[in-house]
Write a protein that binds this DNA or RNA. Structure first.
Length: 791
RNA sequence: GCGAGAGUGGCGGAACUGGCAGACGCGCUGGACUUAGAAUCCAGUGAGUUUUAAAAGCUCGUGAGGGUUCAAAUCCCUCCUCUCGCACCA
């Protein structure tokens, strides 16, 4: 009987003692950078979803190592940030004290036990000074390059976390961390100008080997939309209103303008006698939460400002309205309303009795008609096609200009929290906003017990006089420090660069090693970071590229987003009490079983359904493997060798395409054949162990050692030498008569059509359908199928 | 509403480029071992149907309906359902 506890303990300690998986970063000839998303130590331990991700990534790394690559598989801890901090606040501890403890548990009780080929010598912890010094360095570099800016803006405020958040961290109007309803606030915040990179972030996607889903999520988040800006003069005022439209061809159908309630000129535009109405209107809008405000089904409300704009082409007078369906954040916050050809404008115009003017040819009853078509009622452009007009917009009028708009907004990076890198900026009355000189980094996060966010809009550090008061690096006069910390996603936006030289105190990363090892060859992780970490990392990499620090502009050559685990057909959640704690299975089933089952239970890229019955079955499977490994040695049958030839191919194909479940299935099939034998060849059993080793490392190592192998099995090379068995294999060719399956004939591989036809005629079953009839046509797909058409 | 993906036995899921549907596993049924159970092992297992029975065969079958093809889970059209992403984006 296989004693998994003993074997796993033995190999865990061997992995710990020997540097099997320490990559020689300098000397390596075939570098392969296998990256997984480092965890944040924010809870009582890694959950099964983390394990799923890490193991799935490790299977790939192990496979590549077996294939002879120098695989570098580093790991670290995303230890700064709101998740670790919230956890600390929850349990009433100081993150300074709690985080190292969490890390220790994550590392020693979990990560070191799951059999991954981590190179522990390269561990990176984002909350350590050696690391965040360089996070701050990046901030300073971006600031100097004009890519970081502090500005007033409407931002997302989480009342529970008491900080602002980036757009990407608001999910369905709620805080990504704590699920609290987000409020919009007008505040001065630090932004990274990621929108400058919108087009590159979008265009590069086509060149990346990433899972399509992930690319699609990024595409729609960037949300490029082509259109035009149209400028309207306000009648009797020295004001211009700029609007964005994707349908400049409907310009002659504009019958009014609508502004967002937050629009910058509303004060000027709202007439004296409408001020009161305006104030109560704004109050009503503010009462709505984000979800209600943006609900499509809600009826649209608005009010007339009393002012008019001038149509740039016709000179007509257009009433200017304020409408709660216009968003301040998108486009210019002002819309040229074309009720005949836009559903929202149509609804609004109907409600308030505004003019509806048709300018695209269609059935009059079909309004609003949103399709493009032939322009009508458009003066000299009547008869033009929409597309032609859109193309020529720039020539029509000085007031119209082709423009591109994005859904993507600049990245709000300041956080009114404690547990993060202080933003390295100093405010001086004389010199203004001054970055901390690079040689003075890091700006140390002071260790203090006064770290609880108070919701005032200022970070806890603002209460720390010693920290706040400083001298200006430029003029030496007294100055004040920025007290916000930067977003945790900035920490993780460059950690993959740090991994190659984690202990370098001179620079953020070693350029020579970066050139050798990056971009990352394979990155496997969850899709929940598609708009977050994966977008930010691309941006930071591009920015560092433009600043001359990197030769490449895309950090991850290949990315595979995997699916989620469910339990017995249901979503796992603490409230349902159906969560799975991976550690529970270490003693009952063993790590090998857990790994193998997680990879077997479903398609890794789509997720899977975790069931205890499957764990039991996998345990049975590995016991069978053990029994076969312990069969008497002796020559194996040709049949089994042919089976092994197939298995090697199937496992390679499956792992390379991240179809881990079918790789395991192929090994099971092989086992089902092997149990029929009385003895087994050493080579066969060693190769079996190799194929199994990405999934069940410990039993595979043990088998390898038992059969005389030294060190780790991953250094012993991929199974080879089976080509010749594929040649001698016979195959069954299915035979159809008139397209219906009627039988099979057994022939040698590569048999010709005549041979198969002859066999078919000689086959009792098939002959019935052929005899006495005319064969009109024979379709033969070599080694696959024959279809005989008879009459 | 828009975009993407998916829908296959009692269940999780296979099926590479259009070429044997249901690999592999769970569950279930029967059997072996056992005083008994657990564990383990062996056999069977899409539905319907023909035959006394077995062997063997036939028909149907991949969300629904149509089409292309010698051949469709796979390609095309229409529709339904689910999941994910975005969403009053002008």
């Amino acid at each position: 009987m296989y004693d998994f506890k003993k074997v796993e303990r033995k190999w865990m300690s061997k992995y710990e003692k020997n540097d099997y998986f320490k990559a020689n970063l300098d000397k390596s000839n075939k570098p392969f950078y296998n990256l997984m998303m480092f965890p944040y130590p924010s809870a009582s331990g890694l959950h099964i979803g983390n394990m799923y991700s890490f193991i799935g990534s490790d299977v790939y790394g192990r496979y590549m190592k077996l294939r002879g690559y120098d695989v570098y598989e580093p790991i670290g801890f995303d230890a700064f940030g709101i998740h670790s901090e919230n956890y600390a606040l929850n349990v009433g501890k100081n993150p300074f004290e709690l985080t190292p403890k969490s890390i220790k548990y994550f590392r020693d009780e979990q990560l070191k036990k799951i059999g991954n080929i981590f190179d522990w010598s390269s561990e990176v912890i984002t909350s350590s000074q050696d690391y965040y010094k360089w996070t701050q360095w990046i901030f300073v570099k971006l600031f100097k390059a004009g890519l970081a800016e502090k500005r007033d803006s409407t931002v997302n405020w989480c009342p529970s976390c008491k900080t602002v958040l980036a757009d990407e961290q608001v999910i369905d109007g709620k805080c990504e961390r704590c699920d609290t309803e987000i409020q919009k606030k007008e505040m001065s915040q630090w932004f990274f100008k990621i929108t400058k990179y919108a087009d590159r972030l979008l265009d590069n996607l086509d060149k990346l080997d990433w899972t399509e889903v992930t690319k699609n999520i990024q595409k729609s988040w960037i949300g490029r939309s082509e259109g035009a800006t149209v400028v309207f003069h306000v009648k009797d005022m020295d004001l211009e209103i700029e609007t964005f439209t994707t349908r400049p061809d409907t310009i002659y159908g504009v019958t009014y303008l609508v502004l967002a309630p937050e629009y910058k000129y509303t004060k000027e535009l709202v007439a004296e006698d409408r001020r009161e109405e305006f104030i109560s209107f704004i109050e009503r809008v503010n009462k709505m939460d984000e979800a209600e405000r943006t609900s499509i089904t809600r009826s649209k409300n608005g009010m007339f400002t009393g002012s008019f704009a001038i149509h740039p082409l016709t000179g007509e007078r257009l009433p200017i309205w304020i409408g709660d369906y216009v968003l301040a954040e998108y486009g210019t916050g002002a819309v040229m309303a074309v009720p005949a050809h836009d559903e929202r404008d149509y609804d609004f115009a109907q409600k308030y009795g505004l003019e509806i003017k048709q300018v695209i040819d269609c059935d009059k009853d079909g309004l609003p008609h949103t399709e493009k078509g032939k322009m009508i009622n458009s003066e000299e452009y009547t008869g033009w096609k929409s597309e032609d007009f859109i193309e020529k917009v720039d020539e029509v009028s000085d007031y119209m200009k082709k423009t591109v708009n994005y859904h993507l907004h600049d990245w709000c990076v300041s956080r009114q929290r404690y547990w993060g890198p202080p933003i390295p900026i100093v405010y001086c009355d004389k010199c203004g906003t001054v970055p901390v000189p690079e040689e003075e980094l890091p700006v140390e996060l002071p260790q203090t017990d006064d770290f609880i966010p108070d919701g005032s809009g200022l970070a806890p550090l603002a209460r720390n006089e010693d920290f706040v008061n400083t001298t200006c690096p430029k003029c030496g006069g007294s100055a004040k420090r920025e007290t916000d910390v930067s977003d945790n996603f900035l920490d993780s936006a460059w950690y993959f660069l740090r991994y190659v030289s984690p202990n370098d105190i001179e620079k953020p990363f070693d350029s020579k090693l970066v050139r050798k090892w990056l971009p990352v060859d394979m990155y496997i992780g969850g899709n929940e970071h598609a708009n977050l970490h994966l977008m930010y990392s691309r941006f930071i990499t591009m920015a560092l590229h433009d600043l001359g620090y990197l030769l490449f502009e895309e950090p991850f050559k290949s990315f595979r987003g995997h699916g989620l685990i469910i339990k017995d057909g249901q979503k796992m959640s603490k409230s349902k009490g159906n969560t799975v704690n991976p550690n529970d299975y270490f003693d009952t089933h063993g790590v090998d079983v857990l790994r193998t089952y997680l990879m077997f239970m479903g398609n890794f890229l789509e997720g899977g359904d975790f069931r205890d019955s499957g764990m039991d079955a996998t345990k049975r499977f590995l016991n069978r493997v053990w029994d076969i490994a312990n069969m008497p040695e002796g020559e194996s049958s040709i049949n089994l060798k042919i089976k092994m030839a197939e298995t090697v191919d199937k496992v390679s194909y499956s792992i390379e395409n991240i179809k881990y479940n079918t790789a395991v299935a192929a090994i099971m099939e092989f086992i089902n054949e092997a149990v029929k034998e009385k003895h087994i060849e050493k080579k066969i059993i060693l190769d079996l162990a190799k194929l199994l080793s990405p999934f069940a490392p410990f039993i595979s190592e043990e088998i390898n050692e038992m059969k005389g192998g030294k060190g780790t099995i991953l250094d012993s090379g991929f199974p080879e030498g089976y080509e010749k068995y594929k040649e001698i294999a016979t195959i069954e060719v299915p035979v159809q008569i008139n397209g219906k399956m009627r039988g099979k004939v057994e022939v040698n591989k590569d048999a010709g059509q005549e041979k198969i036809l002859e066999e078919a005629k000689g086959d009792k079953r098939l002959a019935r359908y052929i005899e006495g009839r005319n064969i009109r046509k024979v379709i033969y797909i070599k080694d696959k199928i024959m279809n005989i058409i008879v009459k």
